[in-house]
């Protein structure tokens, strides 16, 4: 059986997906990055191997996410792509007529506008991460509700509370204040969802024409409260794809498949790469006053990759 691997290493989660020749998802892993992308990928590969049929042959591998270059070196990727393109590719694959993609992840949120299957515009949060997964995580923990239950609580709300959503710090103070005033917890949670949606639409989606069909993906799409708040605010139906949490990885796998074409030669290092000891180190270049921090990735003394400089003199990238 032939498969294509997609790896998406973000700030919060590390996702791995294998799709088959018919682009069906064979199996996937969604796990926390825990600030250690190399081990997250290695452990993810190990877990993924357990789930996959024994006879699988990986014919192409793609990486995406903020650690795409690093994870590209670790897995031996055939293609390294930014997460905006990867998400657009995955969304237009599951819904070819999609015109708007809302994506909210751990620390970033983006919007992609597509027309007739081609991305024509996009935006990503710049100055503020209010309303992304990390904040919701933090609030769920503070209130003492498992993050998985957060959305269900929101749906129970009858009179949502007004929560200041422009800044996460003020949103938190406002939530505490509302708790102390005696508001129901579900009203506070749904109020939070509404304010986060307002924030997203006023910042990330500012000036964009949101047209149906709309797809909502990324880890935060698990939160039904946010979905409902989007639908209420926009007055439009929102679709959540089956594999909403790993769409970036699916996009990377699709791109790897496209790149592979009929060729069978993949630079994928195999699942045993999880046993390799990748060493990373860094130093400050003294070549000029820029003082760039150069990062080096080595295996058994052999330098696999080096980057971080502004002038390019240290740069080595295998992929």
């Amino acid at each position: 059986m032939i498969g294509y691997l997609g790896v998406d290493v973000g700030s919060v989660s590390t996702n791995l997906v294998v799709i088959d020749e018919e682009t069906n998802v064979v199996s996937y892993i969604y796990r926390r990055t825990m600030g250690d992308p190399i081990h997250a990928v290695q452990n993810g590969l190990r877990e993924l191997k357990e789930l996959l049929p024994a006879e699988i042959v990986i014919n192409g591998a793609g990486t995406t996410g903020s650690a795409r270059y690093l994870s590209g070196v670790v897995v031996g990727a055939d293609i390294v792509k930014n997460e905006i393109t990867a998400h657009a590719v995955a969304a237009s694959h599951v819904a070819p007529d999609v015109q708007t993609v809302l994506e909210i992840g751990g620390q970033d949120s983006k919007i992609i506008i597509l027309r007739e299957g081609v991305a024509v515009d996009f935006a990503m949060n710049t100055v503020c991460a209010a309303g992304t997964g990390s904040f919701l995580d933090h609030q769920a923990e503070r209130i003492g509700i498992p993050i998985e239950e957060f959305g269900n609580y929101a749906l129970k709300s009858q009179n949502p509370a007004q929560i200041a959503g422009r800044c996460t710090v003020f949103a938190e103070s406002d939530m505490i204040h509302k708790q102390q005033m005696g508001y129901h917890v579900e009203d506070i949670i749904y109020g939070l969802c509404q304010s986060l949606v307002r924030n997203y639409l006023n910042n990330v989606a500012k000036g964009k024409e949101l047209m149906s069909p709309i797809i909502f993906q990324g880890g935060v799409a698990a939160n039904l409260g946010i979905k409902k708040a989007f639908e209420e605010t926009l007055g439009m139906e929102i679709m959540i794809p089956k594999h909403y949490s790993v769409m970036g990885a699916i996009g990377a796998a699709l791109l790897a498949k496209e790149k592979a074409g009929n060729k069978i030669e993949s630079s994928f290092k195999g699942f045993s790469t999880s046993d390799i000891d990748f060493k990373t180190s860094s130093f400050h270049c003294k070549g000029c006053s820029n003082n760039c921090e150069i990062v080096k990735i080595e295996v058994d003394g052999e330098v696999l990759a080096r980057w971080g400089g502004r002038c390019g003199k240290w740069e080595i990238e295998q992929t």
């Binding site: 903020s66 792509k81 930014n82 997460e83 905006i84 393109t85 081609v118 991305a119 024509v120 515009d121 996009f122 990503m124």
Partner: peptide, 10 residues
């Protein structure tokens, strides 16, 4: 860089 890469793809 992420935005530039995505813009080039687009």
């Amino acid at each position: 860089i992420t935005r530039l890469e995505a813009f080039i793809d687009l």
